[in-house]
Nucleic acid binder design. Structure first.
Length: 786
DNA sequence: ATGCCTCGAGTTCA
DNA sequence: CTCGAGGCAT
């Protein structure tokens, strides 16, 4: 807009300001093409307010200054909708859409009628009345016949024009549409509310509805609301086009926001295609929608079809499967995981959410329960988050039964009765029963048998529970002494216990087949690799990646199972916490016994080709010394100590006299002495010296540096490969020395992208990381035979 | 101390 | 997939 001369006459200036402000609103809300910055807009508005304050006679009914909100006005007046606001019938699947279209085709006697199609906004339906182009009244839908006058609140919604543009509008025009809260605005609002302790809104729809029902419009003015028009009500003193699509186009010319997603479609097929198109966009839209609406485009056709009760025959809402549903909490239970983690979960009355029946949802931890304040008997909103896992969004407090009590983490494990303890600063509470806890034992065995561990096919959680409950297995080692007779007997007893009559019990043949298969799977699992075995043990903090690192650094179980933690710490990515967990695990006689038993029952662990050269280098005395974390013993000091003594064994044999004799700083001598004079210190020192000697001997012969073509590179796999599975690709890349990571960062060397690669590929391109397609990978593999 | 970046652990349903 | 927390570089 060009700069014009500023009139001195306040009335002219006020008119000019209003025009400019209206123009800015129009560009922002209708054209989606903002023209002036917010700060400029505020300046204009502020100047107009000043003029209107100085000259109250100049205030008009459509002045943008009204948008800041008038003073509260008491209750809302009732508004009668001369033309009722519709409620639409619903369709939930393609068949119902087909039926709807066929009915129309039959009544109108035409094939594939044209529909005006639009998203169904999840907000609040309202009606806006314009007289002579000026907004005079706005009302909620209410029951369709009678709503509430919320004019003062609606004036504060900037997307709603206070004055229509152009000239050719009818003398009286009612525009219908949806007030909604854009998702970004909703998030930002809540973000701020949480920070500043304001009112947090439950969801965008409630946010919009609650905002419009504020008695004080000044509060509404602060809420980030928007509006889309999609229908017309009363029209007097003028004509509208003959079709709905053309009417909406006309609305847009008059400065009324109409969604850009509004379209037209032919027949049922066109409608369904539109449904699919909008459905695919749903998650990326900046506002919530709960379906799409199909309306016969031609008004004559609409009139001919008419109504059944209050719902039109000429329109229908095709709903998306609900992503959020209400249900009730039947119980709050505690699950005990493999590590003893006590996880509260809710048992829900079954409910369909996004196409699946949900009966359980995790609450993660006690903090989450407290935050949501979920209680048994509560009505809750459940959502499928991240597309899969159900979560409780919030409690519907209005439906809380009167005597519902807040939930607390039980003090004792529901399975074994041991204390449940939550460490200082930790989020999770844990059952302290360890392997005396049946739940932890079952989970430990389940993990041992899992695909990525020992891969015992057919050993599900249910069977492990039965085997454990009925006394057939206590530890993972017991799996390997199960006989066919044991399994059949167990199955029979379990069926009896479950009250199954002989008729309902599966035929003996089926049970035998199951038992034979399971035994075969257990037998096959006997031959395994070191990394799988280490992972299968279920040591705290030791997942696949750490297990692999241990295997490739040390090569065989015999050494790993006796290593002191400072030696374990030599491995990159293993720090004090993890090293102590591993050492601690192997320090328990029970665990060593289980390992011995496994070996005795014929579990064969293939040794790993260890990177001996790297290990040898890491075993340098000074390097080992710093791992022990003796206070004040920095890397530099450790260097000095090491050169004074030559070997770890010599150092740890040193007495105070020898320490003093060595030419070392006083505080280093003191801390070394302090360390070596405690029982634990001496014990640790001797274990370290012993381990170093063993490992040096074991690596003495291997002094070649084992380098692969991808040594030191970090690779990330994404998408679907066709020639080989993800795991195969991972194994091949690792054989060349690459590290295969799960997510892309700037440290990633390259990304291998298969078909339908998603966010990881985007991230790679964003960071400028090299990307290989499958062909490139295959070519590379072919060029470098193993 | 601080802030990435990974890894580990737990989770639902068909 | 998402969160928490361990490891490590700065």
């Amino acid at each position: 807009m060009t700069q014009r001369a500023i009139p001195h006459n306040p009335a002219d200036r006020a008119a000019q300001l209003r025009a400019r402000i209206d123009e800015a609103n129009y560009r922002y809300h209708v054209l989606d093409d903002p023209e002036i910055p917010d700060i400029e807009y505020d300046k204009l508005l502020h100047e107009l307010v000043e003029i209107e304050v100085a000259h109250p006679g100049l205030v008009t009914r459509d002045s943008p200054t009204l948008r800041v909100g008038a003073a509260p006005s008491g209750a809302f007046a009732a508004v009668h909708h001369e033309i009722p606001m519709l409620s639409l019938g619903n369709a939930f699947n393609a068949k119902e859409v087909g039926d709807f279209v066929r009915r129309i085709e039959g009544r109108l006697g035409i094939a594939d009628p044209l529909f005006s199609v639009e998203p169904k906004f999840d907000g609040l339906a309202i009606s806006l009345r314009y007289e002579h182009g000026t907004f005079v009244r706005g009302a909620t839908r209410g029951d369709g016949e009678k709503g509430e006058d919320v004019t003062a609140n609606l004036r504060t919604v900037k997307a709603i024009p206070l004055r229509l543009r152009g000239k050719d509008w009818p003398r009286v025009l009612e525009v219908r549409g949806e007030v909604y809260m854009p998702l970004a605005a909703f998030e930002a609002w809540n973000e701020r509310a949480r920070r500043e302790g304001g009112k947090v809104l439950a969801n965008p729809r409630n946010g919009a509805a609650g905002s419009l029902r504020q008695l004080d419009p000044r509060i509404t003015a602060k809420r980030p609301l928007a509006f889309y028009a999609y229908a017309v009500g009363v029209v007097e003193g003028g004509e509208l086009p003959a079709t709905h699509a053309a009417t909406l186009a006309r609305f847009r010319e008059w400065g009324m926001p109409v969604s850009a997603l509004v379209d037209t479609a032919h027949g049922a097929a066109g409608c369904l295609a539109y449904y699919a198109r909008i459905g695919a966009m749903r998650d990326t839209l900046p506002f919530d929608i709960d379906g799409v609406v199909y309306k016969v485009d031609d008004y004559a056709g609409q009139r001919e079809l008419g109504f059944v009760g209050r719902t039109p025959r000429w329109a229908i809402a095709h709903k998306f499967p609900a992503q959020e549903q209400q249900t009730t909490v039947e119980a709050i239970e505690v699950n005990i995981g493999r590590t003893g983690a006590a996880t509260p979960t809710v048992r829900l009355a079954p409910v369909q959410v996004g196409g699946v029946t949900v009966t359980n949802a995790t609450l993660h931890n006690a903090d989450q329960v407290a935050r949501l304040d979920v209680r048994v008997g509560d009505t809750v909103i459940v959502r499928r988050a991240g597309d899969v896992i159900p979560e409780v969004v919030r409690v519907v407090l209005e439906h809380r039964p009167p005597h519902a009590k807040p939930w607390h983490m039980p003090a004792h494990c529901p399975i074994c009765g041991s204390d449940i303890v939550r460490e200082e600063g930790e989020v999770v509470a844990r059952c302290t029963g360890e392997l005396t806890c049946a739940a932890q034992r079952v989970q430990a065995i389940f993990h041992f048998a899992s695909r990525r561990a020992m891969d015992i096919d057919g050993l599900g959680e249910r069977y492990i529970e039965d085997l454990s409950d009925l006394g057939y297995i206590e530890s993972v080692a017991d799996l390997y002494k199960l006989t066919l007779a044991d399994l059949l007997e167990m199955k029979r007893r379990a069926d009896e216990r479950d009250g199954m009559t002989p008729e309902t019990v599966k035929a003996g043949k089926v049970a035998t087949k199951w038992a034979e298969n399971l035994l075969a799977a257990i037998g096959q699992s006997r031959r395994t690799t070191l990394e799988r075995f280490l992972y299968a043990l279920g040591i705290e903090h030791v997942g696949e990646s750490t297990a692999k690192a241990l295997a490739t650094w040390f090569g065989d179980l015999a050494s790993i199972r006796h290593l002191p933690w400072p030696i374990l710490k030599l491995v990159p990515d293993i720090g004090g916490e993890v090293a102590r967990a591993i050492d601690g695990f192997f320090s328990q006689p029970g665990n060593q016994n289980v390992i011995d038993a496994l070996l005795a029952y014929g579990v064969e662990i293939a040794d790993t080709h260890a990177s001996a050269a790297k290990l040898r280098a890491a075993l340098a005395p000074a390097n080992v010394l710093v791992q022990i974390e003796i206070p004040k013993l920095t890397a530099k000091r450790a260097e000095q100590v090491a050169s004074a003594f030559g070997s770890i064994a010599d150092l740890f044999r040193a007495d105070i006299a020898a320490l003093l004799a060595a030419d070392l700083p006083q505080d280093t001598v003191e801390s070394l002495h302090a360390f070596l004079t405690t029982a634990e210190g001496r014990e640790l020192a001797s274990r370290c010296a012993h381990a170093v000697k063993q490992l040096r001997d074991a690596t003495a012969t291997a002094d070649t540096v084992d380098e692969g073509p991808l040594d030191g590179q970090t690779v990330v796999l994404t998408g679907t490969l066709s020639a080989l599975t993800r795991d195969e690709a991972k194994a091949k890349l690792e054989a060349f020395g690459a590290k295969v990571a799960g997510s892309v960062s700037k440290k990633t060397s390259f990304v291998v992208a298969g078909a339908e690669a998603g966010s990881k590929l985007d991230k790679a391109q964003e960071l400028g990381v090299e990307v290989w397609d499958e062909a490139h990978l295959l070519a590379f593999l072919a060029k470098h035979p193993v």
